[in-house]
Amino acid sequence: MSPRALWLHLRVPFSFFLLPVFLFALSESPAPDAGRAVAVLLIIHLLLYPASNAYNSYFDKDEGSIGILENPPPVDKTLYYAAWALDLAALALGIWVGWPFVGYLLVYGLISKAYSHPSVRLKKYPIASWLIVSLFQGAFTFVMTMQALNAFSFAEAVRPHILLAGAVCTLNLLAIYPITQVYQHDEDARRGDLTMSRLLGIRGTFVSAVVCFGLSLAGFYTYFHGKPVFWLLPACLLPGVAFFLLWFRRVWGDTSQANFRSAMRMTLLAGLGLNIFFLMLFFLNFSESAKTALR
């Protein structure tokens, strides 16, 4: 397996779409240590997530578009070993952050492996995989990041306002996750995987996204107590929402429009909007005058 093919299957750029969870936790941390923040960022996004991507790619052996890969290269055992090496590196480096963080990393890694390993293959259970992936990439990762950034005890990391923020992250994932599967129906059918998007159907996938995204916005409104800072969120998401509605209209009339490139544009706009919002939130929270005005 060539180094380039290995790199492609790690899908490191895909971590950008999961970065909002880290940025949200960072923005809500009382006094995050810069060194810990950088370590947690790198361990999660350059080791944990790529390890999960590589492991899943090895067992899925996709031939059609998957993730951010329109034409995934063939895989071999090298990818399997690379996945384990990245996981072990994440655990080893995680010791510097703290043993609770190592525990979170271990649990996440095991769940991600169960997603595609033939002996479990959560992916073939549409509702279970939808809920589990959204929960672990959302609430679980948010709580893990809050604990790691702030050296919280477990009791401190599961306080109600942290759990609410994590729940909102999960709702975001519940909305977007089936959208990332909507163009893979043929590929998933070839492997016998009934994903959530296949279960819902193409139009149903879009309706589900609208419902979950609406609940997510309601959750954010509650979390921010309806204060002015909340309104920065829909402003940042406006390009993504506009694209989604136009795409939804096209797909409703012609389901072939639910293709790889449109799904990637949608994911990119949503990820970009969320990342911008949470970066703004981070700077606002550390600017007392802005915090007073907006929160």
Score class of each variant (00 low, 15 high):
A34D: 06
P234G: 15
I179R: 01
M280D: 10
P178R: 06
L47S: 00
A51H: 05
V158T: 15
I179V: 11
F16V: 15
A258I: 09
V40T: 03
R249D: 12
G67V: 08
P74C: 11
P234K: 15
V158Q: 10
P20C: 10
R250L: 06
S116H: 09
H225T: 05
P234F: 14
L48I: 13
H225M: 00
S289N: 04
W7S: 04
A165H: 03
S208R: 00
K291Y: 14
Y177P: 00
W231Q: 14
F220I: 05
A151S: 10
F142P: 05
A157S: 14
Y221C: 07
G35R: 02
V107W: 05
A157M: 03
L294R: 08
D33Q: 12
S289A: 15
E63M: 09
A82P: 02
G273L: 09
A263F: 00
M146R: 15
V120P: 00
Y221G: 06
M1Y: 13
Y81V: 07
G64F: 10
G204L: 00
R4V: 12
I132A: 11
W252Y: 14
L6W: 06
T180A: 12
L268A: 13
G253R: 12
W84C: 01
P228R: 10
Q137S: 05
S52M: 07
A114L: 10
F243C: 07
L122T: 03
W96F: 12
P30S: 12
L194E: 13
A165Y: 04
Y115N: 05
A39S: 13
F16K: 11
G103N: 01
N53V: 04
M266W: 10
F248Y: 14
H185T: 11
D76G: 09
L171R: 00
F283W: 13
A235Q: 07
T141S: 10
L174V: 04
N150M: 07
R36M: 06
E187P: 02
G103T: 02
S262V: 00
Y80H: 10
A90Y: 03
L200M: 08
L23E: 09
A155H: 14
Q184P: 04
P118E: 12
Y81H: 13
R198F: 01
L233S: 14
F136L: 03
L272H: 01
D76F: 11
C236G: 06
A167F: 15
S119M: 09
V229M: 06
F282W: 04
L135Q: 06
M146D: 14
